[in-house]
């Protein structure tokens, strides 16, 4: 019994970690006033790149590096489109997701069914789990206790004022977007190197979108995102636990649970004006063209 609940705890942790990492990246992006809906696309590219490199070299460390690189490359594309060319951020994010899902399917075709390389673990916990906590603390500290965090939030709340004060709005947003890309890529790499060490097409299965919902759920607060990620991790694992009890609930209903819970969570949080309006970055999803 103890062993079993310990195993459940471990699976909850591994389910929550990619959500937490991806959400933490997107949180910084949105705090800087950019809405990147391409998390799913960046994540799935990270997953395929991480798997491919780890499979070819045998090194999960190189795999993690490749996953981060893929996420950053995708986010830079998004940055060019929305920050330099001021394209609509919602549409560009969708484009990023569609492109990522397509490209990863094409690249990953050679790796379907291949045995993966699993990240080394200590007592069932891999290095990225403690890293995700450090990341959360780091983001929380950087956003609310340092000057760079203050400037990022200023850019997100009023890009015109920040620009007038001499801050380089576009450059800061590029940095934030690429940080988000690195996190999303890493989260994807976690899926294909630790969570289920193999490559399956569309293996992110909406986790990028759940991470986006988590940011809203957390009302743009890092520590709340941590709680949210573990809540969602628990919900997605609950399905398996209930199934193993053999209550005869169709597995499809249990698989649908995380998506339904996401919707319910969004409804509860969004209906609360006090929580959302106080924290929503005022310039979220607005393009900025400096007047010269």
């Amino acid at each position: 019994m103890v062993d079993q609940s310990l195993a459940v705890m471990l699976t909850i942790i591994t389910a929550a970690t990619p959500l937490l990492i991806a959400a933490m990246g997107e949180l910084v992006v949105e705090r800087s006033g950019v809405l990147n809906l391409g998390v799913e696309g960046m994540m799935v590219m990270g997953a395929v790149a991480g798997f491919a490199v780890a499979f070819l070299t045998g090194s999960t460390l190189l795999g993690v590096g490749a996953a981060i690189f893929a996420g950053v490359a995708m986010s830079a594309l998004f940055g060019f489109l929305t920050l330099t060319l001021v394209a609509n951020q919602v549409a560009a994010g969708l484009a990023l997701t569609l492109l990522g899902l397509g490209l990863s399917g094409l690249i990953g075709e050679a790796f379907v069914g291949q045995p993966g390389v699993k990240m080394p673990t200590l007592f069932g916990i891999d290095a990225l789990v403690p890293f995700s906590f450090i990341l959360t603390a780091g983001v929380a500290y950087a956003l609310f206790k340092t000057k760079i965090g203050l400037v990022i939030r200023a850019v997100g709340n009023s890009h015109n004022s920040a620009h007038a004060l001499g801050y380089r709005v576009i450059a800061l947003r590029y940095l934030s977007v690429m940080f988000g890309g690195a996190c999303a890529g890493l989260a994807g790499g976690y899926l294909s190197l630790a969570y289920t060490p193999q490559w399956i097409e569309n293996m992110t299965a909406g986790r990028g979108w759940i991470a986006l919902a988590l940011v809203v759920f957390a009302s743009w607060r890092p520590l709340r995102a941590l709680i949210g990620a573990y809540l969602f991790g628990a919900v997605s694992i609950m399905g398996f636990v209930v199934q193993s009890m053999g209550l005869g609930i169709p597995p499809q209903f249990l698989s649908a649970l995380p998506y339904i819970v996401t919707i319910i969570a969004l409804v509860i949080i969004s209906g609360n004006k006090r929580l959302t309006q106080a924290n929503t970055p005022a310039c979220l999803a607005q393009s900025f063209v400096p007047d010269r």
Partner: peptide, 14 residues
């Protein structure tokens, strides 16, 4: 409820 339609409509796809 002012819930973001992008996220809810996409979740409903799954």
């Amino acid at each position: 409820f002012n819930a973001n339609e992008i996220l809810t409509s996409l979740m409903l796809v799954y």
